[in-house]
Amino acid sequence: MSAHAGTIDHHHDHTTTTGIPNKKLFMWAFLASDCMFFGALISTHVIYRLHPTPDGADPLKIFSLELTSFSTFILLMSSLLMALAVGACQKGKVEATRKMILGTIFFGLIFLGCQVYEFTHFVHLGLTLNSDMFGATFYTLTGTHGVHVAIGVLWLVFMYIRTFKPADVSKAWVGRACLQFAAFAVATVTIMIIMLAVTHVGNEQGYTLAAIGAGLQHSLISCIAFVASCATLIALGRSSWAVDFGEANAVDVEGMGLYWHFVDIVWIVIFTVVYLLEYL
């Protein structure tokens, strides 16, 4: 299927009036809409920070700037990998595209993991959705952003699986795709469980080797499942056949990339407004 006549110009689509591919234009327009979406959410947060409830929580006592800075950095790096994935796909390098997509998924998951940890930690400290207004706006805003990242990760996973679609339509790949997806799902859920178990023990006993070992022991089944699913992913991570994925799909990867970068930029704004401004 990659037998396209001539090279593909990724910056100009001759079938559209403006030369911009439809999908790309659609994504830009959607992001404009999403800007207003986050604009309204961030405004709500800021308005209620300016009119706090009297007995509300003090963010400074709750936030861990180190952790959030780390996850922010990770998310930024994931944007770099995403850009590399787009570049690789535009050059028709399927293998490189896969690696970069996997990297983006991995970094995206680290970010989500940090957020899950952060949320459980904050709940532990007494900040919940209905404890006070700060809790409500904080969880709604960062949670909505987290959902955006999660949708992005899901999209990346589907795109990753899509790269294995055989060019030969007679070759069945549905079962394989389902297995790959299941492996991703299991790996994601189990690593979150393991991480929470380890940090739970670590918080109580200090992060010694023994404590981490104990944490792993607590979540033994998850550990096994995680290793198994990772092995499955590695085993399925190569294709010996010609695939129906290449330069022609660059616009799809690029649209996904636009979304991913946008979600990152929104995070920069959220990180500044919700976290950094509290330290002023």
């Binding site: 009119h51 409830t53 009297p54 209905n130 207004m133 409500a136």
Partner: peptide, 12 residues
Amino acid sequence: GTGFFEVAKGGM
């Protein structure tokens, strides 16, 4: 149970 618009919870 949030209070975005609930006066008792500080909502406006």
